[in-house]
């Protein structure tokens, strides 16, 4: 069985008390993904957030409880810049995932430190996907210095580890699409994606919706260069490694978040 998977946005604006229409749509779509993950009886979500970016090895979160408040270093002046969080980590799966990364010839780094700062993307996604806080998570970092294809191997290792433990995993990548972040303070109603980036985002999403894996992965590098894609769109490599992308993805929402492109995409689980 190929696990269900999703791409969800990373920006905290989705939690705004007075959101732009696109922020509200993206938030609602992310909640829908959470509903579907629960309907699919997912035990643990394998989570990659590009906002937990690292440079040495692949860090796997091994703390059993990530509880606290994050004050975002950029958005602190807004309500959505103050993010309470409480994530339950599937520690057994986290260790198995780290072991699988090592076994695949990569370098896993087991992370368990009091006061570890959970990134904004992980907090936003977890609050929308799991508003009741009943879910379990296994988190890996996004190594910006490793080849993007490494993220596919990392995800595949996670799925193997989950299977080995008899877990039903879901695979979720928390990432934006294009950059083009608006470099000034704006009102929500002013939010838009610049046309060239919008064209690229739609091109990528069309290929995802068509289930054209080769096209999606083939355009990743060009997309990254042309639209300054979030973390060179390593998210799609992670999703591909988790078994998504080679079947049609359902684009639940797409829109701007402070000038960046953001989308919610869902892939049903599939018999293999």
């Amino acid at each position: 069985m190929t696990p269900p998977a999703a791409l969800v946005p990373a920006m905290p604006h989705l939690l705004a008390g007075d959101p732009a229409p696109s922020w509200a749509e993206l938030a609602a779509a992310t909640r829908t993904v959470g509903d579907r993950l629960r309907a699919a009886r997912v035990d643990t979500v394998l989570l990659l957030s590009t906002q937990w970016f690292t440079v040495l090895g692949h860090q796997v979160q091994c703390d059993d409880r990530l509880r606290g408040r994050r004050t975002d270093e950029n958005w602190y002046a807004y309500d959505y810049g103050h993010l309470d969080h409480d994530l339950a980590v599937d520690v057994e799966l986290a260790h198995a995932w780290a072991d699988a990364i090592d076994a695949a010839g990569m370098q896993a780094r087991r992370t368990r430190y009091d006061g570890f700062p959970v990134d904004t993307g992980s907090v936003v996604a977890s609050r929308l996907l799991d508003p009741d806080g009943r879910g379990r998570w296994a988190q890996v970092s996004c190594n910006l210095y490793a080849d993007p294809s490494a993220m596919a191997e990392v995800a595949a290792a996670g799925v193997r580890a989950a299977s080995g433990l008899g877990r039903r995993p879901g695979v979720v990548a928390v990432s934006g699409l294009s950059s083009g972040l608006t470099p000034r303070w704006i009102r929500p109603s002013e939010d838009r994606v610049e046309p060239e980036h919008d064209r690229w985002n739609r091109k990528v999403l069309d290929a995802i919706a068509a289930g054209d894996r080769d096209a999606v992965l083939g355009m990743r590098e060009e997309f990254a260069a042309a639209a300054q894609a979030d973390s060179q769109f390593r998210a799609v490599a992670f999703l591909a490694g988790g078994g998504a992308v080679d079947r049609p993805g359902e684009v639940l929402a797409y829109g701007p978040v402070w000038g960046t492109g953001a989308a919610v995409v869902w892939w049903n689980e599939q018999e293999t």
Partner: peptide
């Protein structure tokens, strides 16, 4: 070695805005 730190800042348009 990734090239994430090689890219030019933003698109021409966003660079102009910045």
């Amino acid at each position: 070695m990734a090239r994430v730190f090689h890219v030019t800042a933003g698109s021409g348009r966003s660079a102009a805005r910045r």
